[in-house]
Nucleic acid binder design. Sequence first.
DNA 1: CACCAGGCAAGTA
DNA 2: TACTTGCATGGT
Length: 221
Amino acid sequence: MIRIYRRLHRFFGPQHWWPGDTPLEIAVGAILTQNTSWANASRAVSALKEHRLLSIASLERIPERRLARLIRSSGYFNQKAARLKAFVRYVRVRHSGRMSVMKRKGWAPLREELLSINGIGPETADSILLYALNKPVFVVDAYTRRVLARHSFVAPDATYEELQRFFLKRLPADARLFNDYHAQIVALGKEFCRPTKPQCEECPLRKVGRLCLEPSGAGKG
DNA sequence: CACCAGGCAAGTA
DNA sequence: TACTTGCATGGT
């Protein structure tokens, strides 16, 4: 799979993810972008930044209702306000209210803790681990499943854990590699692997020995 | 107008 | 275990 990464990197160039200046900002962005375009989530992050709310203490202090109003543009704002509250409460209680304290722990116990928070599932947990805390965890998302399934690397109904193991088994545990690899897959998915339209003609993975299947599942070259 | 976007949890059978 | 539904905005 490292060959595929090099191919993507050559095609798209470095992606320098995650947009965000601090670990907390990245974690907040990970929650706000759940099933939501980054453009919409990013506006909500900017609103929080303008109101100087990007700290554990201020996010704990602000009333949930007001928080929900500020993050309106990211959609699901009532749920996401509750999820942000749950996350910052967890950081305060378990890590002295500091993301830097979280960094000292290994990724495996951290992952269990994150998954136990209501509103943090596998993708959000792994995004926080990789992009905010620099842990060598591979992030799987809708693009990853679609790209890998269409190129017949995995079954279309592969679980999150299966997709994650697929990469972990074939790559060195390198956070910087995982970081840019995931970003490359998203770049590929956005341009060549749309949900409905087949757009495989110029796909940079066309010649790696796998087919690119149409959305229907019918074979394609 | 329909569909999509860097998911997750709770409910039902 | 295996589906289904609610959550909600903004762009194409």
